[in-house]
Simulated assay, not measured.
Amino acid sequence: MTTKTPASGMPTPLPGAGTNWRTRGLCRDEDPELFFPDTAADRRAALAVCARCPVRERCLAEALAEEGGRNTHGRHGIRGGTTPTGRQKLHSRTAKTAT
């Protein structure tokens, strides 16, 4: 699934994209706790799953859209192959380029 980037710079789902992309996510076969890591090793394991995932970009687009401008305390877990800090930096970068 691809996304469009409006003038705001934030990716948005394409019309009709729906949420069925989740059924193709590799995370569906993993323990959900893996994506809320306590250790660096767990974080690397979660990111490795995301790196192979065919819907990683769609997952990241949804995470960014849902989280908006929240700081890292409002972001949780590994989503779309990124950590909460990584998503905050990505959001800040795209927000700056949109202005």
Rank of each mutant, 00 (worst) to 15 (best):
T2P: 11
T2A: 11
T2N: 14
K4Q: 13
K4W: 01
P6I: 08
A7L: 12
S8N: 15
G9T: 07
G9N: 13
M10V: 09
M10S: 03
P11T: 05
P11Q: 10
P11L: 04
P11R: 08
P11H: 04
T12I: 15
P13E: 00
P13S: 07
L14K: 15
P15L: 09
P15R: 13
N20Y: 01
R22S: 12
T23I: 02
L26E: 10
L26V: 06
L26K: 11
C27T: 03
C27P: 05
R28V: 14
R28E: 14
D29F: 11
D29V: 08
E30Y: 09
D31N: 13
P32M: 06
P32E: 13
F35W: 06
P37N: 12
P37L: 04
P37A: 10
D38R: 15
T39A: 08
A41S: 15
A41N: 12
A41L: 08
R43A: 13
R44E: 15
A45T: 10
A46E: 00
L47K: 12
L47W: 04
L47S: 12
A48C: 05
V49G: 11
V49M: 05
A51E: 15
R56Q: 12
R56H: 01
R56G: 02
R58G: 12
L60N: 08
A61V: 05
A61I: 06
A61T: 07
E62M: 04
E62S: 03
E62N: 08
A63T: 14
L64T: 03
A65G: 06
A65T: 10
E67T: 14
E67Y: 03
E67R: 10
E67H: 11
H73P: 00
H73F: 02
H73K: 09
G74E: 13
H76T: 12
G77Y: 06
G77D: 04
G77E: 02
I78K: 07
I78F: 05
G81F: 00
T82G: 01
T82P: 01
T83D: 10
P84W: 02
T85W: 03
T85P: 01
